[in-house]
């Protein structure tokens, strides 16, 4: 099989200015074209990710967190489409890159670990080949050099390098996920997106993998955008956490602040519905109702139909603004404005 040479890089990443975020998502919107109409899967989402930071995105299934992750890497395929907004990496807008530029950019600077390690590896190629493929596509290395680098990568993620000739079915679930992580680290990217990296694994392996990632992050100094529905894992692992509901970011704060003092009623319910090992014992509660249909999302605050403290006449009509209510603690809820007003007035 002949290989196309790696496309000539015509992308120059401007250096990061002091205090400039590594990744800055500005008013991102994503729609899915379906027969029933446009599904507004992500709407007006903005956040910054600083260098060296672990930023978590959490929410129920279907809230749009994975869609955001894929949009950041421009992995969306029809019927999904970025409908608006910017994704700035080093200040460079990724949404404007051409296909060739994108092919060159992706993986070199930013990579992703998919949800399911079971399906993310090609069953008919050795894991060594699958790691080397990424290297060969982006560098001028020879096959031997790429192989040596693959061996190194396997060692880095804690796999016996002799496994380089193994096929995915010969590895356990945990080992496969380690291989996928090795693939993601192949070109030393500055940002790795982890999309529920441990969903398919049992709890013990899950812990091992997360510890491994933390160790690798310290040694290789990459930043992480961490997607998960598991709030306790997220709070433990991330520096800051954003909560998404029905395609929108509704709260974002440092992990301990989200954990100790969630402000948005939805985050509060979400925290209630998760058992924590270390936290105080409390009654587990679910959230009544189900996420809205995103073809015709509810007006005003998208959470109002399920919110037991919604304010009549306000939450139904007016979209709440994402506002900073405490140090680095942002949320979008009318109730918080009302609360603030009461003690002040």
């Amino acid at each position: 099989m002949t290989r196309q040479p790696a496309p000539e890089s015509n992308l120059v990443l401007p250096p990061l200015a002091e205090g400039e975020p590594l990744l800055s998502v500005r008013n991102l919107s994503v729609v899915y074209h379906t027969k029933r109409g446009e599904v507004k899967a992500v709407q007006d989402v903005s956040f910054d990710l600083m260098q060296g930071e672990v930023l978590g995105l959490a929410g129920e299934s279907g809230c749009g967190k994975t869609t955001v992750a894929n949009a950041v890497l421009r992995l969306l395929r029809y019927p999904a489409e970025i409908a608006g907004g910017q994704v700035l990496f080093h200040g460079l807008d990724i949404t404007t890159l051409s296909e060739d530029q994108l092919r060159d950019f992706r993986w070199k600077h930013m990579s992703i670990v998919f949800q399911s390690a079971m399906n993310a590896l090609n069953p008919v190629l050795t894991v060594g080949n699958q790691i080397a493929d990424a290297i060969l596509a982006h560098t001028d290395m020879t096959k031997e050099q790429a192989r040596a680098r693959s061996v190194e990568l396997l060692e880095i993620v804690g796999i016996d390098p002799a496994r380089i000739t193994s096929y995915p079915h010969q590895l356990s679930g945990g080992m496969r996920q380690r291989v996928v992580i090795a693939v993601a680290m192949a070109l030393n990217p500055q940002l790795i997106v982890l999309d529920e990296p441990t969903t398919a694994l049992d709890v013990v392996v899950q812990k091992q993998i997360m510890d491994e990632i933390r160790r690798l992050k310290e040694s290789y100094n990459f930043s992480i955008l961490f997607i998960s529905h598991d709030l306790s894992l997220m709070v433990e692992f991330s520096d800051r956490v954003g909560i998404m509901y029905a395609g929108q970011l509704i709260e974002m704060a440092r992990s301990q602040d989200i954990f100790r003092g969630p402000r948005h009623p939805y985050t509060q319910r979400l925290m209630d519905s998760f058992p924590t090992v270390s936290g105080p014992r409390s009654q587990l509660r679910g959230i009544p109702g189900s996420p809205p249909d995103l073809v015709t999302p509810p007006g005003g605050c998208r959470f109002h139909p399920r919110c037991d403290v919604a304010l009549d006449g306000l939450c139904q009509q007016v979209v709440p603004v994402f506002t900073e209510y405490g140090p680095n603690h942002w949320a979008a809820c009318h109730l918080l404005d009302a609360k603030d007003e009461v003690p002040n007035g």
């Binding site: 967190k65 994975t66 992995l75 969306l76 395929r77 998919f114 949800q115």
Partner: peptide, 10 residues
């Protein structure tokens, strides 16, 4: 729709 972005059809 969690992995919907890359494989919405599935």
């Amino acid at each position: 729709m969690d992995n919907a972005a890359t494989s919405s059809a599935s």
